[in-house]
């Protein structure tokens, strides 16, 4: 199965247990459609041949089963749901990011696979079906038990570890997308001329620049004038 049809298949798998309440868990109760944005397959950002080759290999590798990918998608969606103006995990293509980064990191493979297996086993024990196939309310009961690292119940520790890992991957995956940048309000990564902390921010923090320090700093109105110095190392331009 090629990648596109695999993704389509996963979407329909996500849609299948509608009756079990997944639609509302994915924040799509109204429309019923699973909102799963796709990530690009080709990247170009100054790669060497060896790097491109390695990435191609990673993309071609199938590690997770469809069942596992659905479990990942359901978890990502619970952690960062789509019922938000800036979109959620599925809008930001999280399942595909998690799939890629787990293959890329290598050392995440076992914790994620084993974590899903633990979660399924726990869900079967509690509610008689694996995690993706129990009801939304039942899923949240489980999440409430494993989403808090301060819980000391030894029997839940594998689940707590796994949920923390999935929360890390979901948040890192989301906040490194355009949606995440919008959600955070990130302003950087553009050419600009830094001229210090805004006045109102300084005031808010009760801080100010020491006048002697400020005197030494760059006069941005003269940044384009070619530097020259006198013999005593004083800048004269």
């Amino acid at each position: 199965m090629n990648k596109t049809s695999r993704r389509e298949a996963l979407k329909s798998l996500l849609l299948a247990p509608l009756a079990a309440g997944l639609a509302s868990a994915t924040g799509c109760a109204a429309g019923g459609a699973v909102n799963w944005n796709e990530l690009p397959r080709e990247y170009s950002y100054g790669r060497t041949g060896a790097e491109r080759q390695r990435d191609r290999k990673l993309f071609a590798e199938t590690y997770f089963s469809e069942h596992e990918l659905v479990a990942i998608a359901v978890l990502c969606d619970i952690i960062l749901p789509s019922d938000h103006p800036n979109g959620g995990a599925l809008d930001a293509g999280l399942p595909e990011f998690v799939e890629f980064i787990v293959k890329d990191r290598g050392n995440l493979k076992l914790p994620v696979r084993g974590g899903i297996a633990w979660l399924d086993s726990y869900a079967i024990g509690e509610f008689g079906a694996d995690f993706a196939n129990i009801g939304e309310a039942q899923r949240l009961v489980i999440c409430d038990r494993i989403a808090w690292p301060d819980v000391e119940d030894p029997a839940l520790q594998p689940g707590i570890r796994f949920f923390s890992l999935m929360r890390d991957l979901t948040l890192t995956g989301y906040y490194t997308t355009e949606q995440g940048f919008r959600d955070l309000g990130y302003q950087g990564n553009v050419a600009n001329v830094w001229d210090g902390v805004p006045e109102q921010t300084l005031a808010r923090h009760g801080l100010r620049y020491e006048p002697e320090w400020l005197e030494k700093c760059v006069d941005q109105s003269r940044r384009d004038i070619i530097a020259s110095w006198d013999d005593d190392m004083n800048l004269t331009s």
Partner: peptide, 24 residues
């Protein structure tokens, strides 16, 4: 970015962990 996202809550006497839009 976002790993151990709300670990500092511990220093504020709040509970670390959870899920949902509160993480934002």
């Amino acid at each position: 970015f976002g790993f151990a996202a709300n670990q500092y809550k511990r220093f504020l006497g709040e509970r670390v962990g959870g899920y949902g839009n509160g993480l934002r």
